[in-house]
Design a protein around this nucleic acid. Structure first.
Ligand code: ZN
Ligand code: ZN
Length: 826
DNA sequence: AGCACGCCGACT
DNA sequence: GTCGGCGTGCTC
């Protein structure tokens, strides 16, 4: 490997790069011929690393490397995509704030699969042929056999052919013995531009016409091909010609009468169809006021955060559309973030009917190719609006004018593994970095956001009225403690009679239960035993259709036992209820009704989700039962009754936000009732009819609920009055986890800032270690510690020191994950 | 991620 | 004694 030092050559160029596979950054020198290479941050490079090659991301130039000897960058691996510099700034912030390796953050900002693949290929050596007699393990034998048969193979290819999960060991042994060699290679990305062949006329239309008539007799098919081409405007993709004409096409090409070329054929996500065009509606005064304020901020091109607080049906979307128009007029991009389950065809149709091709779409249903093409449409300036889920915050605009975060309170904006960023908070930072306007919209804003609007950090824009002044639905509470009202499990007299009325009137009912499956556990009443997951500390959910007990955390499945495994009792009973059981009960109760269920189990297939929604819209369903999924994003004008079967479920989460979440959920569900011209009714069943979340939901009183809860948060010193960072330790041996967590706590305690003068509490306090609410997951024990403080900067510095200690400490294989601003404490 | 190195208990 | 698995640190 040619290396050089600062002394051996004149003015070498040094660069800092980040890798997705190794934390930190590394320094290399550029080949001297590249000195003027225009590198932009995020540019992908091939570098030597250890004994192999890696893909690396260019970060910046450095005057002087940190290490005495640097290796040279080998090649530029940039394909058709690059990251705009304004976005790179944001990636830096994410890496820093969420304490995630920069390389991994950068990797996540590129469309998946669009990167060149750097890997090694193994070959058999001569020595291996002559070393037949030496002893080898079975896996090693299989590797050799596979290589003998298949020539050079990559690791995934070998894995497939040998069935070996743990190949690494065998490969390195074989390599050491000199029986196999490896060669590094760079392969083209799996996701690439798609091309199609285009044929076109070489002559102008007049000449073509005379050509056609001259061919008419001798070669009528060729003439008709030319005619088709002429009619199509002179050019057409080969694929658009019917098969019988292809031969004539080829003859024309051979004769040189027409020509062909390759053209990119962009893959576009399915466009929703069948929705009525919504004309630009007249704004009510509140909407008008909101639009004016936001638009003037957009014109000012300064970072301005707004909180648009409007109940469901208050016309937030129309406000968004107007604001986006303004940003586009300024030649700046717009990003619209929407929670996954709210990103419906209905919403997309609305944006596309207004903005057409300018809309690029990002959601989990796209193929990698579609995602890549949509990404490039934005990068190349062909699309100005990115609408999508969490990761759409990385839309590669050079310049963003407005970022909208719809349903900003939704917890799906927080990524819960890997780089644990919060898209709403990231949106605010991107807005600040780009001098853009950020609009957070919600009917039930997160307390953090509403608090920020009270302190003046955000500008509050209330939309108090519903369009057409439709009243909010009447909400009734049914006390589940009154067992005399129970007709069937979780189906009470008041709810059933309200449903009967809807069936008579040919109106629709939504039943909401936040729990899928048939029953959340089986119980042996003789000994109290509940079947648990073998790898997680949760009971197994019974799925009737599947005839399996399923772990909702790790997917473990078990055939349902016929007898108790502890006492052999055979009277196993279902404890609690899930949507599957509700569906069964409802079908029995209302045999004539058309019943459907929408939850993760019934929407596995790609189009099933859409099918249910369409059936619902066309009134082919009388009663729809579902989980969270039914609560967002669709207008069902004929739903006049919403039943919440058990409102308590979300109250039991081990989380200081559980009251807030429950209220938000209930408000959201209630918003599904009465969106047409008929008034809606909501029935909430609960064991805690006096709980503040439920009381507030019955009166649609966000402000009252907020006032009460925020006082409680203040008293307890919970967010928004403090910040949290959660550290999660995990390992299959419980005592190691406990021990290592305690050891780190000891280290962290040394660096906690002292209390301010006159205050009892330190600037950052540490809670734990304590078992995580889900103490075991996939066979690993989990303990956590929580850092708490008013000043995020202080928490961050404690965290940094803590992580430094962790790096130096004995870790005994225990994993540590950092979760800044955790939303999910399980 | 992949590799080398050092440590420690097991075993020819 | 030395083999092998585990844990740790390093890769520019
Ligand atoms: Zn039993
Ligand atoms: Zn499990």
């Amino acid at each position: 490997m040619p290396t050089l030092t600062a002394e051996t050559m004149s003015a070498p160029q040094f660069v800092e790069v980040a890798l997705a596979e190794a934390d930190g950054t590394f320094h290399y020198h550029l080949p001297s011929t590249w000195a003027a290479a225009p590198l932009t941050p995020g540019t992908r490079l091939l570098v030597p690393f250890g004994r192999g090659w890696r893909l690396a991301y260019y970060v910046r130039r450095v005057d002087r490397p940190e290490v005495p000897e640097t290796k040279p960058v080998l090649a530029l691996l940039d394909g058709d995509v690059s990251i705009p510099s304004s976005l790179f700034q944001l990636l830096h912030w994410i890496s820093d704030y969420y304490s995630a390796p920069l390389g991994r953050v950068i990797k996540g900002a590129f469309p998946q699969g669009s990167q060149a693949v750097v890997r090694r290929r193994f070959h058999l050596t001569e020595a291996a042929e002559s070393a037949g007699g030496e002893k080898k393990t079975a896996l090693q034998e299989r590797v050799i056999a596979a290589l003998k048969e298949g020539g050079g193979l990559t690791e995934p290819q070998l894995r497939k052919r040998t069935g070996g999960e743990k190949l690494a060991g065998s490969l390195s042994t074989l390599k050491k013995k000199g029986w196999i060699t490896e060669a590094w290679e760079v392969d083209r990305p799996a996701v690439r531009k798609k091309f199609r062949r285009l044929v076109f006329l070489k002559s102008d239309p007049a000449e073509a016409v005379s050509l056609i008539s001259s061919l008419q007799k001798r070669a009528p098919q060729q003439a008709s091909v030319l005619q088709i081409l002429l009619t199509a405007g002179g050019a057409m993709p080969v694929g658009a010609f019917e098969a019988p004409l292809r031969a004539s096409l080829k003859r024309l090409l051979d004769k040189g009468l027409i020509d062909q070329a390759e053209e990119e054929a962009p893959r576009t996500p399915m466009r929703p169809s069948g929705f009525p065009l919504q004309p630009s509606i007249l704004l009510n005064p509140d909407q008008q006021g909101a639009v004016e304020q936001i638009v003037s901020a957009v014109e000012g091109k300064t970072f301005t955060p707004f909180l648009l607080h409007g109940v469901t049906g208050s016309g937030k979307t129309e406000v968004y559309l107007r604001v986006i128009e303004k940003a586009l007029a300024q030649k700046r991009g717009a990003i619209v973030l929407v929670p996954e389950i709210a990103l419906t065809a209905q919403l997309v149709a609305r944006f596309q009917s207004r903005f057409g091709e300018a809309v690029a779409l990002f959601h989990s249903g796209l193929s990698p190719g579609e995602r890549y093409d949509e990404w490039r449409r934005i990068r190349e300036g062909k699309a100005q609006i990115a609408i999508g889920v969490r990761s759409a915050i990385f839309a590669p605009f050079e310049s963003v004018g407005v970022i909208i975060v719809d349903e900003e309170h939704d917890s799906s904006y927080k990524q819960d593994d890997g780089v644990r960023y919060h898209a709403r908070d990231t949106a605010l930072v991107r807005g600040k970095q780009s001098d853009a306007v950020v609009v957070l919209g919600s009917a039930t804003p997160s307390f953090e956001s509403f608090y920020n609007s009270e302190t003046g950090k955000y500008r509050l824009l209330p939309l108090p009225g519903r369009i057409d002044a439709r009243p909010l639905p009447a909400v009734a509470v049914v006390d589940l403690r009154k067992k005399e009202d129970w007709v069937r499990p979780f189906l009470t007299r008041p709810l059933l009679s309200a449903m009967e009325k809807r069936l008579e009137n040919r109106e629709q009912t939504l039943l909401f239960l936040n729990r899928r499956g048939f029953s959340p556990s089986l119980l042996c009443p003789d000994c109290g035993y509940l079947p648990h997951c073998i790898r997680c500390s949760v009971s197994l959910t019974f799925h009737k259709k599947l005839q399996k007990l399923v772990c909702h955390y790790c997917g473990f499945q078990l055939a349902p036992p016929t007898a108790c495994s502890q006492c052999q009792g055979i009277r196993l009973v279902h404890l609690g209820i899930g949507t599957e059981q509700v569906e069964e009960e409802i079908r029995q109760r209302f045999p004539a009704a058309r019943v459907a269920r929408m939850d993760r189990d019934t929407t596995q297939k790609k189009e099933s989700h859409h099918k249910i929604l369409t059936a619902m819209a066309q009134r082919e369903i009388d009663i729809l039962i579902g989980t969270q999924m039914i609560t967002k994003g669709h207008d069902f004008p004929d739903v006049t009754l919403v039943g919440v079967l058990c409102a308590d479920l979300s109250l039991h989460f081990p989380d200081f936000r559980s009251s807030e979440r429950t209220f938000q959920l209930l408000a959201q569900v209630a918003g599904r009732a009465g969106r047409g011209d008929r008034p809606g009714e909501v029935i909430i069943q609960t064991f805690q009819p006096n709980h503040e979340s439920i009381v507030a939901a019955t009166t649609h009183d966000y402000l009252g609920f907020y006032a009460q809860e925020i006082a409680f948060r203040k008293e307890m010193g919970y967010p928004p009055f403090c910040r949290f960072t959660l550290l999660l330790f995990s390992h299959s041996e419980e005592k190691r986890v406990v021990d290592r967590a305690a050891a780190l706590v000891k280290e962290i305690e040394k660096v906690l800032p002292p209390p301010k003068k006159g205050e009892a509490e330190r600037g950052v306090t540490l809670l734990g270690p304590a078992p995580a609410p889900l103490m075991r997951l996939r066979g690993e024990y989990r303990y956590q510690i929580l850092l708490k403080g008013k000043d995020q900067k202080k928490i961050a510095s404690v965290l940094k020191e803590g992580l430094n200690s962790w790096k130096r400490m004995e870790r005994k294989g225990v994993r540590l994950e950092v979760n800044v601003d955790p939303q999910n404490f399980v």
